[in-house]
């Protein structure tokens, strides 16, 4: 038990993060900063506080427990949160009556993470299991390897949901203990990729090729964001690239902007594109395009 992890969140009864009923552990910290990111609380690698203003009932419970004076009440009896002073200790979230303050990020050791992962083991059956996601879980690859090895030793199916933008050594670390990779591809053009995510896609694609060559079980996920990566030429290029690899299937995921409130809550700049969710016809067209390239594509 050498390593610890920065855990962002846990989802039990997850059915879209790999096969069967799963528990997904979201680790904090991501090398990308996708403009459409729906888990912006996963980007920063340290704990941070979210403040959901609409839930605040001005009860003031947070004021007395805040060690830095970040939480105050105005003379009019309204609550005020000074993010600059906040050290994300989470004391306010413990007492917040409206559940307006939420802390993202807590340190867990292997024993704690295992306990979380095993809680729903009775539901995994022959197909379900545990997925580690993020953020980018492979930024904490050493911990992930320990966790997944321990799970595999208990006969539990393991999956890693990765953006792939990590040194190959990180991927290599989890290879022996990962039954399945959920691997994001966001754009085929390196320049566009950099514009949309802050990083080029070269490492992502080369890691995917190596994974494929090694015979890993891979499901590619393509988040389709109108105006960003939904032009058919781009999708066709992706199809050509993926058809040359051993990919079990490609899941096309429809962009939605439901996470927008999180940006405000985190005090982060809202970068989410102001576009509609792709229509079912548009999704179907993307899936069809990929299928024409010989890829087993499905709509997620």
């Amino acid at each position: 038990m050498k390593y610890k992890a920065m855990l962002m969140d846990v989802k039990r009864f997850a059915i879209h993060d790999g096969p069967g009923i799963r528990t997904t552990l979201f680790l904090k910290g991501c090398p990308l900063k996708c403009v459409w990111c729906h888990n912006p609380e996963g980007i920063w690698p340290k704990p941070q506080m979210a403040y959901y203003l609409h839930k605040c009932i001005d009860c003031g419970e947070c004021v007395s427990v805040c060690p830095t004076g970040a939480q105050t009440m105005t003379e009019e009896g309204r609550h005020s949160f000074d993010r600059e002073r906040c050290i994300a200790c989470g004391a306010c979230a413990e007492v917040c009556l409206g559940e307006a303050m939420l802390r993202y990020g807590r340190t867990v050791d292997l024993e704690q993470a295992l306990a979380i992962a095993l809680e729903d083991a009775a539901f995994y059956g022959s197909t379900g299991g545990v997925t580690v996601s993020g953020g980018e879980p492979l930024l904490q690859a050493e911990f992930v390897a320990e966790l997944l090895t321990a799970l595999k030793a208990r006969g539990i199916h393991t999956a890693v949901d990765t953006c792939g933008c990590v040194p190959w050594e990180k991927v290599e670390k989890v290879l022996p203990c990962t039954d399945m990779f959920l691997y994001d591809i966001k754009h085929m053009d390196p320049r566009q990729h950099r514009q949309l995510t802050g990083r080029s896609n070269e490492r992502i694609l080369s890691n995917l090729i190596r994974l494929s060559e090694l015979g890993a079980r891979i499901e590619v996920r393509f988040p389709m964001v109108p105006g960003c990566n939904d032009d058919m030429e781009q999708i066709a290029q992706m199809g050509v690239f993926l058809s040359g690899l051993h990919i079990e299937r490609v899941k096309v995921l429809a962009y939605h902007s439901m996470a927008r409130a999180k940006y405000a809550a985190l005090g982060a700049e809202d970068t989410m594109p102001r576009v509609d969710t792709p229509t079912s016809d548009e999704m179907r067209a993307a899936v069809e395009q990929l299928r024409q390239m010989g890829v087993n594509a499905v709509s997620g």
Binding site: F13, I15, H16, P19, G20, I21, F123, G125, T127, G128
Partner: peptide
């Protein structure tokens, strides 16, 4: 996936 999950829940 949803169908399989409901089945597994009941089982």
């Amino acid at each position: 996936e949803g169908l399989a999950a409901m089945k597994q829940l009941i089982q």
